[in-house]
Nucleic acid binder design. Structure first.
Lengths: 221, 221
DNA sequence: TAGTGTGAATTTCTTCACAGCG
DNA sequence: CGCTGTGAAGAAATTCACACTA
């Protein structure tokens, strides 16, 4: 989905697994383990060991043969690769159920994504707060984005409003968008978009569920 | 992530795009268009035309050369492939913000995923209703699953509770699980699991956002 | 000895390009 | 003519297997 950026490339597939490794390493830190083998890390992340070693090798040699990887060192390194060494102020647009859930979702602030602003088009919602953050009107996006130095926008509006909100975000200066609305949005070159459609995953499950009557044995991930 | 099921295989990558096509076709139906070219469909789904044609070709020849695809026919066909010709009763475990958002999320029932039951471990929540569906205690999973003929479970609990809930679901007879908890769960062979981690996508955005200062020109999706 | 790092083999996915059909 | 359907080429990702080393 994304062109390879400056410098020589880390495969997209590898990038998409880094967050999994990061989470696993955080668990290992909590358990106060200081080293980890590719095999163990693979098991925790739900992939296989060869993949872990290959993935990590793109960043250089961080392991010790015969021992494994230093948990703390690797954690720091992946965090740096992911750009998670500083906070990212974000704005969420659309304060319906999903928007509220996202605003409340601990997993964001945990990992450096600070909900700096919330916007909605409904005047009744404007002025109320979620998790201590006031809901502003979507017309104030411009001001909020520049004042709070926001680069990342999250769209949690209904599908029909998504493109308009995306346009406003881009105009305001947002350069990365995470889109939860079940529609494709188009943006100018240079703007990054990723999409999550909650129902898509269920449909994929349904596909495999439907066609396994015939004694198929499938493996969970 | 999932072994190829009975019959000759449709590539995983293709399966994961079917929901996109389905959504686009539904929009075309709403606009009362009766045919669509691979190019137009590609644009709507956010992929390229060759991919659309290749994907659809796995199901046989459904297009008309010189014209395109019949919207209604293709829609029906993909819906059948995805197993969406009948309703799937689902249970959601974990009625925090995310669980509530999912229960409210129109995108599910729209597409045949009926929220048949909700469970939580917190006795204070048990007995209240969300969208007209009562919240039951997680101990009643067994009864609910068999009585309501539920095959699909959605986990929206905190990470630490996810494995336990998954075990209970499997014991109760659930065969497909969609896991929103930020942790890997393990299940017996024959149980399908898909995972959605809301924060993972943000971290991937962060990766690319971080490394584009150097005049890189990236393309949004 | 245990476990990394990595070329090479393999598989999967994408894209091309054009023959063939309505 | 316009657009599908598809072999074949190309690219990307995964997996193998083993040399190497702390």
């Amino acid at each position: 989905m994304v062109g390879s950026p400056s410098g020589q490339s880390i495969p997209e597939a590898t990038v998409s697994r880094l967050p999994l490794y990061l989470r696993s390493l955080q668990e290992l830190m909590d358990e106060e383990l200081s080293t980890v083998s590719s095999e163990r890390l693979a098991e925790m992340a739900g992939v296989n060991a060869a993949k872990v070693r290959k993935d990590l090798s793109y960043f250089g040699s961080y392991g010790t043969r015969g021992v494994g990887y230093d948990v703390e060192y690797l954690l720091l390194h992946i965090r740096r690769e992911l750009g998670l060494t500083h906070d990212w102020p974000c704005v969420i647009a659309g304060m319906g159920n999903l928007g509220q859930a996202l605003a409340n979702y601990g997993g964001f602030s945990d990992r450096g994504f600070v909900i700096a602003a919330l916007v909605d088009a409904n005047p009744d919602k404007v002025g109320t707060t979620v998790e201590g953050v006031p809901i502003s009107h979507v017309d104030d996006l411009d001001d909020l984005v520049s004042r709070l130095d926001i680069h990342i926008g999250v769209i949690a509006t209904p599908a029909h409003a998504a493109q308009d909100v995306a346009d406003r975000m881009v105009a305001a200066g947002v350069t990365s968008i995470l889109n939860f609305a079940p529609t494709v949005i188009t943006v100018p070159d240079g703007i990054l978009v990723r999409k999550v459609d909650l129902a898509v995953e269920l449909q994929i499950l349904s596909f495999y569920q439907e066609r396994r009557q015939a004694g198929a044995s499938l493996t969970g991930a």
